[in-house]
Amino acid sequence: MTEVSTSSGTAENGVNVQALLDAREALKSAPEAAQFTWRASSKWQNGVHSTTRVQNFYGLGQEQSHKTETVFDADHPAVFAAEDNGITPIEYLLVGLASCLTAGVASVAQNRGIQLRSVESTVEGQHDIRGILGDPDVRNGYNDIKVTFTIDADATPEEIEALVAQSQKRSAVFDALTNPTNVTVEVA
């Protein structure tokens, strides 16, 4: 943990901003170390239920590992005539978006010397399921996603708005959802 003193005071949000700034500086002369590969391995269980495990990734020039493996169950709810062994895959996108933006808010606040007391958000994705059921005129994915933050911090409403705007600007998941990405799916 680190404390960053700025003109607006000293904040302690538990984000090691100095380490991140140091990393940014170090990666300027070693861009190859910045190339990360994130991985997940998935296995069909039964019906539309699958289990996905995440532990290893690659970065800073070598294999890396989380402290422990995390296992995610994905399924569909009873209204889809499924067993509901876990959340639906498209809900995982909401998990990713909310957690990424929240991490961004905390990091930007730390960097700007803003003390946070609570950061809560709700995420809603509007989804017309006729697409996945085969209607060619309806897209498969979300039509619209809305995130609503409620933030209590030592900052003006304008500073809080700026935190949320900057967290979107630097969010990996916000980018992945709002901009197209090449996706290759093949059979090994």
Binding site: E158, Q166, D175, T178, N179
Partner: peptide, 20 residues
């Protein structure tokens, strides 16, 4: 042509910076 869905945020950023 595929356009970003992040239009609202570039508006927010520009409005905030102008206000500042």
């Amino acid at each position: 042509a595929l356009f970003s869905g992040g239009l609202r945020n570039v508006f927010s950023l520009a409005d905030l910076k102008m206000r500042r």
